[in-house]
Amino acid sequence: MTKWLEQPLSWENALFFTAMAVVFLLIVLLYVVYAILFERKVLGWMQWRHGPNRLGPWGMFQTVADVLKLLFKEDTIPRKADRALFIIAPALCYAPSFAVLAVIPYTRELYFADLNVAVVYYAALSAISTIAIVLGGWASNNKYSLLGGMRSGAQMISYEVPLVLSIVGTVMMTGSMNLRKIVEAQGDWFWQWNFLPQIIGFGVFLVAAVSELNRSPFDLPEAESELVAGYHTEYSGFRFAFFMLAEYVYMFAIAGLASVLFLGGWRPPAPFLDFIPGIVWMILKMAFVIFFLFWLRATMPRVRIDQLMGFAWKVLLPLAILNVFVTAVGLELFIKG
């Protein structure tokens, strides 16, 4: 991949990257289909039931059928909705979620962009989805949607701050914002990875990430028991699917980011496990983070909106800043000095 990326732009590599993007999109879509199945299975096991098991072996085709159903559903737009915004919102929500995947290095060789400001790029692009959610909530002309959209706006803006700050510690340790360099800088053994020295940062990152993803226990924008379905109450068919898709692709991205920043990316937990290809380790680590998100969903009640905001500003942000401070002092004392 490095070879391709370093070439000047030509018809040949433009075509190559377009083809790669399409292939990758297909892989991501396949992931979404099975992430949903996996989530339902995990929830099922944790709740003494089977989860989907009717369609295909082990319920394998259940989500495929669900997606097909969404495709065939009538496309409804409320008469008093703001048509243009209503239509553009789902696409606007999904596009950045796919775009952020470009900067995540999946193995030493497999990455789609070698960006020096990858972390900033991620934070900036993912903020666009927030705008889309607020737009969708507003354009629906539904009071529940509006409340959901507003909540989402408030929540995502508040949690972006600790999310980015929690990464700063890692960036300081590596001295680079390039995600590949961050992985390279982590040691061979699993206790040399960033999650141990950056344990506060890792904790803050996970909590803020769950909130960024709008997942339980921070799933306030779509709190079904309060706001019916939140910002996507009025959406149906494939427009709804786009919101759903964006949520799961972001989960993919956050899992990738967590693995890269804190869990050693494609590195095996011990040097002698080197014979297993890096992509396998990366997938395992991402699967673990994703499982963690499902696990939370099965066990936690929902946080209240005011407590959620208070938690971001009063607990997470000071912790993240403390982490930056401690990292700086630690680096000065033990590494440089």
């Binding site: 929830l43 099965a298 936690m300 009640p301």
Partner: peptide
């Protein structure tokens, strides 16, 4: 209502 899924099924 409070957003926890599993207790309902238990």
């Amino acid at each position: 209502d409070l957003g926890a899924l599993s207790p309902f099924l238990f």
